[in-house]
């Protein structure tokens, strides 16, 4: 509980309240990204409102991961601009947490779970300064938040895929951010991890944070998120699930002949009616 209050205290100092009141967490204008001559993302205009759990959904090769990377300045953009609370990303780094795809790193790297989580504090530390006891304690607290505090000293290759994913999430928590970008956090994880991630997303939302998640599973998307952006190189639609996640929009996103997507959608409609009553 003490640790919990530390987190909230820290984040309240980290968030520019003034900016938050006037600007949206993420505003993307006319963004175009190309690889050689092929557009990967074209003319993306997207604004994510404060406090949303947002899913970015689209078929393979739609540019979902690229969109996150472009916002974070990790891939060169051809045109367009990105604003974080009304300012360029470079000025707002401290407000952002990033969970890359799990398979983007070599998990046989000689390091421990706790050490990976501490990397989340490196941004605050800046150049040369080493993490100390405060960073270590905070990283332990972040591990505990994803139920991994018992694995702090494990070498990371000895963790299951789901546990590795939770370590990555804990590292993003250690960034103590206000906006979290997550790239496919639900891919290849066990049921325990899936529940842990969902609980974490809800907790982040309760704390007023904004989460933007690349997600591939149309079935679970409406249950886990409350806001969606449908993407296929271009932005097809964005907004709350109720008005955005329609058969028509899904057909546009996945291609008119993609029957599977539509079936998914109908399945979801039925499900949603059921789950609304339960909730």
């Amino acid at each position: 509980m003490i640790a919990q209050s530390i987190v909230e205290e820290r984040s309240s100092t980290a968030v520019p309240r003034m900016d938050a009141a006037v600007a949206n967490p993420v505003e993307i204008n006319d963004l175009t990204v190309a690889y050689r001559d092929n557009p990967v993302l074209q003319d993306i205009d997207l604004t994510v409102p404060e406090g949303k759990l947002a899913a970015i959904i689209g078929p393979n090769g739609a540019g979902k991961s690229t969109l996150i990377k472009a916002v974070l300045g990790l891939v060169p953009t051809v045109a367009g601009s990105v604003r974080i609370y009304g300012k360029p990303y470079a000025q707002q780094r401290r407000l952002i947490g990033y969970v890359p795809q799990r398979n983007s790193v070599d998990w046989d790297f000689p390091t421990t779970a706790l050490d990976v989580v501490m990397m989340g504090t490196y941004g605050r530390l800046g150049w040369i300064r080493r993490p100390g006891k405060a960073e270590r304690d905070f990283a332990m607290h972040c591990l505990a938040q994803v139920g991994m505090d018992g694995y702090a000293d494990r070498q990371i290759s000895q963790l299951s895929g789901g546990q590795q994913q939770r370590v990555f999430l804990a590292r993003a928590l250690a960034q103590n951010a206000h906006i979290y970008f997550m790239d496919e956090p639900f891919v290849g994880v066990d049921a325990v991890t899936e529940r842990a991630i969902v609980a974490l997303l809800r907790e982040l939302q309760r704390q007023g944070k904004t989460v933007i998640c690349v997600h591939h599973d149309l079935d679970s998307a409406p249950d886990y998120f409350d806001w969606v952006a449908l993407l296929n190189v271009r932005l097809i639609a964005s907004g709350p699930f109720e008005t955005t996640f329609t058969a028509d929009n899904l057909r546009k996103t996945y291609g008119g002949t993609m029957k599977a997507a539509i079936e998914h959608f109908q399945h979801f409609e039925e499900d949603r009616r059921g789950s609304r009553i339960e909730n």
């Binding site: 890359p100 983007s104 990976v116 990397m119 941004g123 300064r129 080493r130 590292r171 960034q175």
Partner: peptide, 20 residues
């Protein structure tokens, strides 16, 4: 620069997102 080199070797895109 031990901390920075370690981060670069383990996860370069994450290092870049932090501003290194």
């Amino acid at each position: 620069l031990y901390k920075e080199f370690k981060l670069l070797a383990f996860d370069a895109p994450f290092a870049a997102s932090l501003g290194f």
